[in-house]
Design a protein around this nucleic acid. Structure first.
Length: 847
RNA sequence: GGGCGGUUAGCUCAGCUGGUCAGAGCGCCUGCCUUACAAGCAGGAGGUCCCCGGUUCGAGCCCGGGACCGCCCA
């Protein structure tokens, strides 16, 4: 505990761990599951990969969710932030495989059972890292109910979903062209593929016509796949080749006869206008092949080597085969052209290796039937996506959804609950009775299990207290990149298996880029570690900074915003010292205004309470955070605390100061929980008040809004600023008290405030003609001749001001003389212009 | 190729339905150790709101065209 009389800085490193301990010990984050989901408030955290470490995306999203959860908790709702990690199939398996290699062992050497055992051991040792890191951030998750997408209960849910969908005919096995990732030796889904710009060689190759009447030239960057060609296609509207459709060509090197077919897919202006069709190794060709009933030949195997179908090339790597095929074609004089060709090529998001499209037998999920209700949930407004532009993307994606390849050739994950015995196939939660059954070796795509996250974490399929209390959840906060990968799938599965939408609001937050605008990534070296930032500036500062810099679009990381947050925490700490060291003892906090400035700050407080609440409700976190900053700096510290200095700290003032401080702490707590909790514990009566995290969130009190006081103190502020500014311009030091007189209305109750803050003696103005005139609201402050005032300079400044005013007046008069303006502009705008003109004429007259 | 977003102060960004909207933080300059905070306080300088046209009494804001940057999908 800091000693307020001597400590002038808030020390996050010392305070934050201590405060987190108190929160965790209080049980506030882990309430009993009572009541129903309508009354309660819940958020399911996007489960970080168990292999993960906290990055800026987690830190931002954690801050966002924590603001929501803390705010609702303080508003009296039972708030549950569901926590857990994802088993992250490929990532985790690779992690452990790497260690095995370092030990001179391998996955294969260990065997499946032992390997999976090793992964569990790894998880036991390192899987908690990111959870601990969320604590550093101050995230008020329910740490007592941490889940894992591979724990027992969760596994049961996954199996049930698989078996149900299988029985309903939505899950099926099929031969299909998949994105084969040679790196992980597994099929991966379309969404795990990323395109990269690559320059390949585009070869033009001649295929002779079978009747000897000529040749067809096709263009390809993958000549080695020609060994699997089963047709040549042209555009049906292409007159150049119309006569060829239906004819036969001879596939060089292989000798197979290929039909020339017509298909709309072929672009007339690309390459030669003739396309070789390789259904076994190209997604588009695969589609064309299925349309035309073509044979599907595979010449590349899952090991990345040519298969026996490739004849003499069998066993070669793809690259070797390409060289040999091109060489052979050259020898036969069939290569017509070679050119460099930049294009985009699919790569595995996971392993980073180039995708090899292959036909293989995989498990698929039919999505159309699941997608329809998920589209309806959003178009009907039952689920709201913020910002709305993302809703369009969601709907468009679902409308064009394709079957989802859900099997992965990995060992770490939910092994597919299907057993085989000869020709028999059995899908079930329990293995079938009898001998001789072998289970499918594949596991499910990690996203299959994540899709169940909002309800599987709560005990589904059992009807549990947790499920009743917290499902459906309220908000799902995430970045854009997993809107399809995860969010859409949760909606589909939620609707299918619980009959309810899994959440009512989806908030899509910014992606934080590196300060130079590039992606933040470890491999680029552009990453900034949020934990280092927390070490340097404190968790409050990082939370504030991330929230303040976030918006609906991507933003660059701004360390200035984090420093701004640190400044705010420190400012609040010192403002609190001032209040606590001055107030009378034994006074209960309460609004007890006696002076205009008291009414003013209470009125301003109601406005910031109102605004902050509305901004959090609207997911406008940047404005919520910056609005708090503006209030604390621009109103509370710069003005109110300065205005009350010099007053006696009587009961009324003490009560009001404590009230304003308390309300401000509570209001700011969801954004900067640590420093506010720390100060809260230093308030008088803290022992009985409990934790701020469990206190009430402020509500605006309309009775304390006071427009009159706002005008009155607003004038004081403007007047003080005007005088200070004048002093600087006149080269007069800010310190000395100058004689002056107030020639303005509206300061009956506040003149002493102006005098003190502007360093003026308003009773010493005398009656002599003014040597300087400072315009203020309602009139002017006049300064008599003195050593400090240079009459010549003053005269010059006055003349300049007059000229400026005259110009402004002419402009306003011109505007008001414009018939179009007066006739068409709204009355309020015209009136405002007239009022402005009057004000300027008044000021000119006063000069 | 299709779609979406962006371009406002030296930097990072706010600017709602067109009318006190030209703003904030940081940086910079000047002056202050004013009994909460010098990681502070006060004051100040700084902008062709990407370009060209249009609509309007009035345009960062709306419309058309263009340039550049970024993201998503194919």
């Amino acid at each position: 505990m800091p000693d307020l009389t001597t400590t002038t800085r808030f020390d996050p490193a010392e305070a934050e761990p201590r405060i987190m301990e108190r929160w965790l010990a209080s049980g506030l984050f882990a309430g009993a599951p009572e009541g129903d989901a309508d009354a309660n408030y819940s958020i399911a955290i996007p489960p970080p990969n168990v292999t993960g470490a906290l990055h800026m995306g987690h830190a931002l999203n954690g801050s966002i969710q924590d603001v929501l959860i803390r705010c609702r908790r303080m508003q009296g709702r039972r708030a549950e932030w569901i926590l857990g990690t994802d088993h992250a199939g490929i990532a985790t398996q690779k992690q452990v495989e790497k260690r095995l290699v370092e030990e001179g062992s391998s996955r294969e050497a260990l065997g499946r059972e032992a390997f999976v055992e090793r992964v569990w051991e790894w998880r036991e040792e390192f899987g908690g890292t990111i959870i601990e890191q969320f604590k550093r951030l101050g995230a008020s998750c329910d740490y007592t109910r941490e889940r894992f997408t591979l724990d027992d209960g969760y596994h049961d849910a996954v199996l049930k979903v698989f078996v149900d969908l299988y029985e309903q005919g939505l899950i099926y096995r099929d031969l299909y062209l998949v994105n084969w990732d040679p790196g992980s030796r597994s099929a991966i889904s379309d969404l795990e593929v990323e395109d990269r710009e690559v320059t390949d060689t585009l070869y033009s190759i001649a295929y002779p016509l079978a009747d000897g009447s000529g040749e067809v030239v096709v263009a390809t960057v993958r000549p080695e796949t020609m060994l699997a060609d089963t047709a040549v296609a042209v555009n049906p509207g292409d007159e150049r080749f119309a006569h060829l459709v239906g004819k036969t060509v001879i596939l060089p090197l292989v000798g197979r006869e290929l039909q020339v077919i017509a298909d709309e897919y072929v672009k007339t202006d690309f390459g030669t206008g003739c396309l070789k069709i390789t259904p076994g190794h190209d997604p588009n060709d695969f589609e064309i092949g299925r349309r035309h009933g073509l044979e599907e030949i595979s010449v590349i195997g899952e090991d990345g080597r040519m298969t026996t179908e490739a004849g003499e090339y069998a066993g070669l790597s793809v690259a070797e085969a390409q060289q040999r095929v091109v060489a052979a074609l050259r020898e036969q004089g069939l290569v017509r052209a070679e050119e460099a060709y930049p294009h985009t090529v699919p790569y595995s998001h996971r392993s980073g290796e180039r995708i090899e499209p292959l036909i293989s037998e995989q498990w698929f999920m039919r999505m159309d039937e699941l997608a329809a209700p998920a589209i309806e949930a959003v178009t009907s407004g039952r689920i709201r996506i913020h910002p709305e532009s993302q809703a369009r993307r969601y709907v468009e994606w679902l409308e064009n959804i394709r079957p989802w390849c859900i099997s992965r050739q990995l060992w770490w994950g939910h092994q597919i609950p299907v057993w085989y015995r000869g020709e028999e196939v059995y899908a079930g939660i329990e293995p079938p009775a009898g001998d001789g059954w072998t289970q499918d070796a594949d596991v499910l795509d990690t996203w299959f299990s994540s899709a169940l996250w909002p309800f599987a974490t709560l005990g589904w399929p059992d009807d549990t207290d947790l499920l009743r209390a917290y499902y459906p959840t309220d908000v799902l906060s995430t970045a854009r990149d997993i809107l399809f990968l995860w969010v859409a799938r949760m909606v589909m599965m939620g609707l299918r298996f619980t009959g309810e939408i899994p959440f009512t609001d989806v908030y899509v937050h910014s992606v934080i880029q590196a300060p130079d605008g590039r992606r933040m990534s470890k491999s680029l070296g552009t990453g900034i570690d949020p934990l280092e930032e927390i070490d340097k500036h404190g968790a409050d500062a990082v939370r504030f900074g991330l929230l303040a810099m976030s918006s609906t679009q991507d933003v660059r990381y701004s360390s200035e915003k984090v420093e701004q947050g640190q400044a705010l925490a420190n400012k609040l700490f010192n403002a609190s010292r001032f209040v606590l060291l001055n107030v009378a003892e034994g006074v209960a906090p309460a609004p007890r205004p006696t002076r205009p400035e008291d009414h003013w700050i209470l009125s301003r407080l109601q406005r910031v309470i109102e605004e902050t609440g509305a901004r959090i409700d609207a997911f406008d976190f940047a404005k919520a955070a910056l609005g708090l900053y503006d209030f604390v700096y621009g109103e509370l510290c710069d003005w109110y605390l300065e205005l009350v200095k010099g007053r006696e700290y009587d009961e009324e003032l003490s009560a009001t100061l404590l009230h304003v401080l308390r309300e401000t702490l509570a209001l700011a707590h969801p954004v900067i929980p640590f420093v506010t909790e720390e100060i809260w514990s230093l308030l008088p009566g803290a022992e009985d008040a409990g934790l701020l995290a469990g206190a009430a969130f402020p509500q605006p009190d309309p009775a304390l809004v006071d427009a009159g006081a706002e005008r009155e103190i607003g004038a004081v502020i403007e007047a003080v600023r005007a005088v200070r500014s004048w002093r600087t311009g006149a080269g007069i030091a800010p310190g000395p008290v100058l004689p002056a007189r107030l020639a303005a209305d509206g300061y009956e109750a506040t003149a002493p405030l102006v005098a003190r803050l502007a360093r003026l003696d308003l009773d010493a103005g005398g009656a002599a003609p003014a040597a300087a005139v400072v315009p203020v609201p309602g009139g002017a402050i006049e300064l008599p001749p003195s050593d400090a005032v240079d009459p010549e300079a003053e005269a010059k400044k006055l003349a300049a001001r007059r000229a400026e005013l005259e110009g402004e007046i002419r402009r306003a008069e011109g505007k008001l003389a414009n018939e179009g303006f007066v006739a068409k502009a709204p009355a309020a705008v015209v009136d405002a212009e007239r009022a402005k003109l009057e004000r300027m004429r008044g000021e000119l007259a006063a000069l």
